[in-house]
Design a protein around this nucleic acid. Sequence first.
DNA 1: AATATTCCATGAAATAAATTCACGAACTGG
DNA 2: CCAGTTCGTGAATTTATTTCATGGAATATT
Lengths: 296, 296
Amino acid sequence: MIDRHHLEILRAVDRDGSLTAAAESLHLTQSALSHAIRKLERYLGTSLWLRDGRQLRLTQAGEYLLSLSNRLLPQLEHAEQVIGQFARGQRGTLRIGMECHPCYQWLLKVVGPYLEGWPDVDVDVKQKFQFGGIGALFGHDIDMLVTPDPLHRPGLVFEPVFDYEQVLVVSGDHPLASREFVVPGDLERETLITYPVEVERLDIYTRFFLPAHASPARHKTIETTDIMLQMVAAGRGVSALPKWLVAEYAEKLPVVPVRLGEEGLPKQIFLGLRERDCEVDYLNSFMNLAREVRWG
Amino acid sequence: MIDRHHLEILRAVDRDGSLTAAAESLHLTQSALSHAIRKLERYLGTSLWLRDGRQLRLTQAGEYLLSLSNRLLPQLEHAEQVIGQFARGQRGTLRIGMECHPCYQWLLKVVGPYLEGWPDVDVDVKQKFQFGGIGALFGHDIDMLVTPDPLHRPGLVFEPVFDYEQVLVVSGDHPLASREFVVPGDLERETLITYPVEVERLDIYTRFFLPAHASPARHKTIETTDIMLQMVAAGRGVSALPKWLVAEYAEKLPVVPVRLGEEGLPKQIFLGLRERDCEVDYLNSFMNLAREVRWG
DNA sequence: AATATTCCATGAAATAAATTCACGAACTGG
DNA sequence: CCAGTTCGTGAATTTATTTCATGGAATATT
């Protein structure tokens, strides 16, 4: 079998011009080289060098193998470099899972600076998971989960990265637009627009309507934040979104945030990752960056 | 060091799905594989597989190394094939040296059929040698020499491959065109055109003029046969070439062959090669083919 | 021409590496 | 829960590699 060692020998003998010199640069004795060559030549059934006096001259087979060496060895050497980077957490693909629809806007603000700091790390964002975000984390489909629901489990670590207030969004000319805050009863004749996820994961239900045994008149689901807010601006319904997100859209659309309940609906976004990965530099660095991003 | 063996392991584990199965197909025990993997992982400083229950799942570093395996292993395997062909003399570059200018036409007739029979052998023809054709043969710059002067030396083998007659060429309307043969004195007022080689290697001197202590009036040299015969046809000189070659050109140009001396000037072309190479199939085969080519 | 030096080959001995054996722990599917 | 797999590990064994010691052959030196 032609081994990497053999390719190194071909290259070294060619580079250094003699067995003795090649042995030196390979940190071997000349004898060891001679034995190794003899063995390879016997295996291949052909000589690789012509011994012409004390000169070595490559045969055609030798030339061929030398060119192979010059092609393959750099690839192997590069691979070791790259794997070293993997090992030191300087390279990889950071696969982020999102369980929080509006967080996409937030994520973009983190990813930008991150990519600059980690030129060898690629970022990939996934939004659909067969067994939920936690399952995807366990199943190694993703490396990091952005979620408002930190389901603590052994082997997983969650850290809050930012706090915000979930608010009701209404159009600028909506009767509720000027209210200090709304109570569940205020929305009994309204159409509520949400992302298409299970009701249990919608805080406006779990923390606002359900405790008061109330509910909106209608419930529609829409995939994208943009369209959702277009609908709200057009007076076709109300929605519940992060306050900072509404603030951003308020510059372009006639939408207004209104506090949900007297105390408001405080929320937190968590980043989750596998406990084992906590020490991985490029994941850790993402966490730190995420905590630093601030909002007006 | 990432070794070929390691790449084979990556590939086998991926292909067979488990260590045990991979060990089987590599003709190893599972234990040996486990040890080898552990050693590689320690060397690289990172794990290549995640042990998740009894499932193995590649890490990013593992994926990377697997793709390297799939790229490099086929090249190594192909190289062994090719070197096997070198060893069995089924492949190579047959480097032919020519010391006989007009023989190029003859060579072309041999090379054609040869290339068909040896699809993996390339033919390369060289015409200039720093230390002569014999030197080139000894110095392994060429593998075979086409020459009219078989300088027998230990380590070299020469075989005559074809006989022909060297003739004088004159234009159709030349006074000598109708002669049965010419003697040296007939050419004392002529311009002789030859290839640009030493006079000692021109038979018309060594075997025709010099024995008679005669010489032509002028001597010009021209590199190519085509131009040489154009000159002869135009009556600008006479030349000495193989009879068969003149016969071929006579169809297109007004040139006529005339016997040199009463007996003519018989010549032989020899193929020479290194004694050691006598058993090499693709060289041997060329010799045989060369002997078979016949001339009208 | 004699001598020294350099370079490669080789067999035996020493060393290092890979592989197997034997066993145990952890997981999977019935 | 149990039988059957699968993987990991230390010690023993086998195999491969490397060194040591040496010699021969080609080149350089005087």
